[in-house]
């Protein structure tokens, strides 16, 4: 199935054109290795437009099984937009147009046969701000399994809820008050509740859009531990503004700049030996 996608290098070459006299001129093609041997999701030559304005320029990136890919870059660089394309959350924005190829297990995400509702059950998402539903803790986690009919009876549903809460590291804190409203939890607990809600539908990929930006350091540390554990079973892409976080949780790091993917490599080499000048400037704090 993977052969519907052409190798990134040849395609990237076609788009190489002389640009205006800006910093963009330096970004000719992505530096580093955008592909992995065992890809779960693949993006090739993706362009995204909001109306007339182009937000993503020719991005190609793989997300492998059992790995965490961190996406870093200054605000407005398109990393969140790219993430939201991976489970078609941008569909709700009428002016948004996506071109290029994106696939999950070789299946075209923007193909005519793909149902975005089913896609999102396989590619879950955790948002920047915790967004629990106005329901009890139990019902928040049970929401996904219920709409997808994953549990045959109440006992099975109880088990899914308990298991998801345990894996999100929240169960011990809330086991006595599963009927309490999810919105009454603290910020960090709410975010773990949202993660529990996401893993309750057993997705294959989890996308995280700055999941810790609203949390304190202790809650952040718990979520980072959790991400590391979840890696055993899922492919994870995380957008973050914290370079320390990217260094701690990810195996590969992608640096975005003004809608272009500047550099992608092993996290270690990106942070110790950046290949591109823009990446180096960003991680050493010279701008961004």
């Amino acid at each position: 199935m993977n052969d519907i996608l052409s190798p990134p290098v040849s395609r990237a070459g076609l788009h190489e054109e002389p640009t205006a006299n800006t910093v963009l001129q330096e970004i000719k093609a992505t530096v580093g290795t955008a592909t992995v041997e065992n890809p779960k999701m693949q993006a090739r030559n993706v362009d995204v437009h909001y109306g007339e304005k182009q937000a993503i320029f020719d991005v190609s990136l793989d997300i492998g099984n059992n790995e965490v890919v961190a996406m870093i870059g200054p605000s407005g660089c398109g990393k969140s937009t790219f993430l939201r394309c991976l489970n078609r959350m941008n569909d709700s924005i009428p002016s948004c147009r996506v071109s290029g190829e994106m696939s999950l297990d070789g299946e075209d995400l923007y193909g005519p046969d793909l149902d975005p509702v089913l896609l999102r059950a396989r590619v879950g998402m955790v948002f920047q701000k915790p967004n629990p539903f106005a329901k009890s803790i139990y019902d928040n986690v049970a929401y996904g399994p219920r709409i997808h009919g994953l549990a045959g009876n109440r006992g099975e549903l109880d088990e899914i809820v308990t298991e998801s809460l345990k894996r999100a590291g929240l169960f011990d804190e809330v086991k006595d008050r599963l009927d309490a409203p999810g919105t009454g939890l603290s910020g960090g607990q709410q975010q773990r509740l949202c993660i529990a809600r996401t893993i309750a539908v057993s997705p294959e990929v989890i996308l995280m859009d700055e999941p810790c930006s609203a949390l304190d350091p202790i809650a952040t540390a718990r979520i980072e531990e959790l991400i590391d554990e979840l890696r055993q079973n899922y492919a994870i892409a995380i957008v973050t503004h914290s370079m320390q976080q990217a260094a701690r949780v990810s195996q590969r790091t992608a640096y975005f700049h003004l809608g272009k993917l500047v550099e992608v490599n092993d996290t270690n080499s990106v942070f110790t030996n950046p290949q591109h000048e823009l990446t180096e400037n960003y991680i050493t704090g010279r701008f961004g």
Partner: peptide, 25 residues
């Protein structure tokens, strides 16, 4: 909108989102 997004991200349809998330809220 964040609440709707949360529901869509779990793979629910528009009508499920309206019935089970938006109206109760």
């Amino acid at each position: 909108q964040a609440m709707r997004d949360g529901s869509y991200a779990l793979g629910s349809t528009k009508s499920e989102t309206v019935r089970k998330v938006v109206i109760p809220a």
